[in-house]
Nucleic acid binder design. Structure first.
Lengths: 383, 383
DNA sequence: GCGCTTTCTGAAATCGCTTTCCAAGCCGAC
DNA sequence: GTCGGCTTGGAAAGCGATTTCAGAAAGCGC
């Protein structure tokens, strides 16, 4: 069709559309937004003009004029970490349902970068800001954080977090790390283990602290105390910590890594050193990121509905702020026993010492919070 | 300090800052952007006022006035897929270096959603749009796509893609899927395999088609033809396809899954059916997503520098468009032989039939494009 | 002390859209 | 035929910055 070729560098504006349709800006705007009734023939002309010119409204101008944005901000440590990836998935799905755009930022665990991003998102007038993952225990940092967040909230911005300090008084999706770790400890005690080690990350992270506390607490109830090895909060951290752990004498019969990601590193370290899991050492993680059921042996862990947690955080952020009080949604973890854990070598209850059973692969749910032991013998390939 | 409490619902504007500092908007703007010299005392006052009021410039107003945005758009199929997650990581790191915000969209493999997102990003006047992952082979869709992308490019928008159709005439980061798959096939032939199967995804995806063609091509050179089983382009697709493959008689001695993600599903399927890898069947994938070296057995694959690919795409998009021609950066894959492949059970060259060697874990590089066989015996825990 | 250049500063235009406010236009009813 | 009551369309005022333009102040040589 003989359309006039555009001027080149510049965008088509509403004015262009209005002119081509022979109406005013107001009318064009009304048609395009359905804000008000417009006579049928005019509407058609506007629509046609917009289509012919491939008009795309300038979101900045819209945001400015209507002072509302369709973008939300999400800040996490690292998108390529399966834990955050899984949560992000839920966030993005929910955002898409609400026709929102997600600005995703990875801080790569740099506190300053986190604050920078909040400032940027504030500047973008993001409708909501989601903080995923532990914050940092640092007074100065927390103050700087509040200094960015407070004005944002005061101006009507919404903030929601997943597993943060409660000191941040905002809507929170809070996995029950302590209870989950305790339930896991009890399940492992039931298997007959008495000698435990824990692979932790930096204890300044609340997630780490809570899981560690829950686990050691439950062991303490049984009169036991685990040895603790600290490492980086990553796969490599798990690998290094597990390697270090192998120098302990006597070796523990059961190892709990505070996250699945660390457990993965630990599992490879054990394999590389010729240690049989679970024959010599049982290994358990926390989170139930999708991959761990595909490991050999499949990893015992505490299952968290990661995707759902992302969705919930998003919904919290979108919901009208109820009172001035912040809401907390608690998420129960579910212990899933898989083949990476077995009774210890010299177990009082000698069950099948070599569990060649197929992997346990089930959908996570919000079911029973504690003391759940999974059947672990279904071979459903669902995911 | 006795600051006046804000009005509540509204943001602090530059006017507020200027008023408080007793200067004009222009001066305040100049101070805050360093656009021009301003007398020291005035500058101090402006800075102080901005800090006291926790001023955050309205990015929309800035974008409108200066017609430039600091946001870039990235569209992929699913952030929670490790392949995209790894590429995204490179993108985000590079974006951060340039002080840019990333709007990340997951299409969940819905073609319409992809187009919607492009429209939204166009509306946002994103400085660049990155398309990560295969497009769809659908004439109508391609036309709709072009209809969105063309006006965007014409108005000065930048587009870069990772592994797309060459039909989209834009800057491209193109992994050499065909060559990589061929090199892998030759390496597997060298191991002594003669009976192959391929687990593919939908052949309409160019990535799938290229890898399949490269693999079968190399086999054809040796006078062989693999059996082909098609499945979904996901972990579950791999699981299902592998399950189906087990019904073949005779069973192949070597299976190539066109992506690592499918290979992971296949590996679990084989395990669930009691098939020993690599004892009975060798298994190889493609991509070298970080997790596959932690599987048992570690997966043989064609390594792609995913993080770097993301970075390159980002750089392409930011670089000034050279000529009107689109640039293509080819990325060589590197064959990495790990323990998931071994000579077939009745191998002509009976090497060690039980490779209990520790995993091969090395950093990927842009090195030798083909016929590389990795040593596979270093136990470096790096990642 | 005067005129001229060189900095700085501030008023005002502009970016592209939404939305209020009015003026027309049209209807049936008196 | 004229008058209220409605619907519709357009002019214009923002939204919150950037940036041009012109004027004020300051610096300088003579």
């Amino acid at each position: 069709m003989g359309e006039q070729t555009g001027p080149g560098r510049s965008h088509v504006t509403l004015r262009d559309v209005a002119r081509r349709a022979g109406v005013s800006l107001a009318t064009a705007s009304r048609v395009l937004n359905g804000t008000a009734q417009v006579r049928a023939d005019l509407r058609e002309r506007v629509l046609a003009a917009a289509a012919e010119l491939a008009y795309a409204p300038n979101a900045h101008a819209q945001a400015l004029a209507s002072s509302s944005s369709k973008a939300i901000g999400v800040i996490c440590h690292d998108v390529s970490d399966p834990y955050f990836a899984a949560i992000s998935r839920g966030v993005m799905r929910t955002a898409a349902e609400h026709d929102l755009l997600v600005m995703l930022a990875s801080t790569f665990r740099d506190p300053d970068r986190e604050i920078e991003y909040i400032a940027m998102l504030r500047a973008q007038r993001a409708r909501a800001i989601l903080l995923i993952g532990s914050g940092f225990e640092d007074r100065a940092w927390e103050r700087a954080m509040a200094a960015e967040l407070d004005p944002y909230v005061r101006a009507g911005g919404r903030v929601a977090v997943v597993s943060r300090h409660r000191s941040l008084r905002v809507d929170t999706v809070q996995p029950q790390n302590r209870e989950g770790a305790a339930a896991l400890a009890r399940a492992l005690l039931d298997l007959g283990h008495r000698d435990f080690a824990v692979l932790t990350g930096p204890r300044s992270l609340t997630t780490v602290a809570d899981r560690l506390a829950g686990f050691t607490g439950a062991l303490a109830d049984a009169g036991l105390r685990p040895r603790v090895v600290e490492g980086g909060f990553t796969r490599d951290g798990g690998y290094a910590a597990a390697t270090e752990l192998l120098r302990l004498d006597p070796r523990p019969t059961c190892v709990f890594a505070v996250t699945d990601v660390m457990a993965i590193g630990a599992l490879t370290a054990l394999r590389d050193h010729g240690v049989d899991v679970p024959g010599e050492v049982s290994l358990a993680g926390f989170d139930d990121i999708p991959i761990v059921a595909d490991l050999t042996p499949p990893l015992t862990t505490v299952s968290l509905p990661l995707d759902e947690m992302g969705e919930r955080a998003m919904r919290l952020a979108l919901k009208e702020p109820r009172a001035s009080r912040s809401r907390i949604e608690r998420i129960a973890g579910r212990v899933v026993l898989r083949a990476s854990t077995a009774p210890p070598p010299s177990a009082p209850t000698p069950r099948a010492p070599r569990p060649a059973a197929p992997a346990d692969r089930r959908r996570h749910g919000t079911s029973a919070p504690r003391r759940t032991t999974a059947p672990g013998n279904s071979a459903t390939p669902a995911r």
